[in-house]
């Protein structure tokens, strides 16, 4: 006899995973950044389990998309593996810090940090994709020693793109913090990884995003095993979200290719900023610094996120008008 109540619950979580996967894919921030707030704020899932389920889902989505990008030769496996030295170390320290935070009942720190990370990730993620190739920078000794050269065939411009990265050491430092956040918050930290390879190492945007995607799986796997033994993987949740987020991210990628008006993504950025602000409010309430009633928090979060996204949209539109030739 099938337990229909449990089945309904499973399907609801799976649907949440699909939504997280779609929004994560459309915004480019990844399913985990949406899944954790969704599960904690709307499903009443403790952040311990939400983070565990998110890490597992992150590996699934990373493996799914990285398989395509590596086959096309866009993701640079060598650069990715080299940077994973710092990321995996960061993930171990992040997962252990998570354990300390949880055992000391300091979960509010995770909510606050999560909110801040989402909100600060929006701007670099929006700006991503506005330009394809970085300005040429003089090569340094790490370019040669760490073999930071590569090439890929760009289908859009129908030409082979050759590139060489710089400042490997700076990339490693940023990657350490990306790993730390991944282990601590159960996310892929794609925004920070992209920053490390794009801004610090001066790699082309396509190489950066696809290599970051490849790396996310390795980083998340490092944190996941520690989460497993600590008991933060809840089977019912993790199985529903792994399937849901994977399906959602596939739908999101397909939709992104088909929509002609990319401005529609701003709706999803509004949702994302709402989740970020609401996570901060929940963190403030849990910390007992100030008690924000849920209904007030909801209203303020909606208003704040709409204003924030409108301001961002105007700021970027002005910047694009002024520097239109960069597009």
């Amino acid at each position: 006899m099938i337990d229909y109540s449990a089945l309904t619950e499973f399907l609801l979580i799976l649907a949440g995973g699909v939504i997280a996967g779609i929004i994560g894919s459309l915004t480019g921030l990844g399913g985990g950044s949406v899944l954790v707030p969704l599960l904690t704020l709307f499903y009443g899932v403790p952040i311990e389990y939400a983070t565990g389920a998110s890490l597992i889902s992150t590996i699934a989505t990373s493996a799914g998309s990285a398989s395509t990008y590596t086959k096309k030769g866009i993701a640079n496996i060598k650069i990715g593996v080299g940077l994973e030295v710092a990321t995996t170390l960061g993930a171990i320290i992040g997962a252990l810090t998570f354990e300390i935070v949880v055992t000391h009942n300091l979960q509010y720190i995770l909510y606050l940090l999560f909110g801040v990370v989402i909100l600060t990730s929006i701007l670099p993620t929006v700006k991503r994709g506005k330009y394809e190739y970085p300005e040429e920078k003089p090569l340094d000794f790490t370019s040669r020693v760490f073999q930071l050269s590569g090439k890929y065939y760009d289908e859009k411009s129908k030409k082979e793109v050759r590139y060489t990265g710089v400042r490997w050491w700076l990339g490693e430092i940023i990657m350490f913090f990306a790993g730390l956040l991944s282990g601590l918050l159960g996310i892929g930290s794609g925004a920070l990884k992209v920053l490390g390879m794009d801004w610090a190492m001066n790699l082309p945007m396509k190489v950066t995003t696809t290599t970051s995607n490849f790396m996310i799986g390795i980083t998340a796997a490092t944190g996941s095993s520690i989460y497993w033994y600590a008991g933060y993987i809840q089977f019912f949740l993790a199985s529903a979200t792994a399937i849901g987020v994977l399906v959602g991210s596939r739908i999101g990628s397909a939709v992104l290719l088909k929509i002609s008006n990319k401005e529609i993504r701003w709706i999803f950025f509004t949702v994302l900023s709402f989740l970020g602000v609401d996570m901060i409010f929940k963190g403030i309430t849990l910390s007992k610094i100030y008690n924000i009633p849920p209904i007030d928090g909801f209203g303020i979060s909606v208003t704040f996120s709409i204003i924030l996204v409108i301001l961002l949209f105007i700021k970027l539109s002005i910047a694009e008008g002024k520097y239109g030739n960069l597009r």
Binding site: I59, A221, S225
Partner: peptide, 10 residues
């Protein structure tokens, strides 16, 4: 299934 995912990067 979950461990296959964790071991994929390995």
């Amino acid at each position: 299934g979950l461990w296959v995912l964790i071991f994929t990067p390995v």
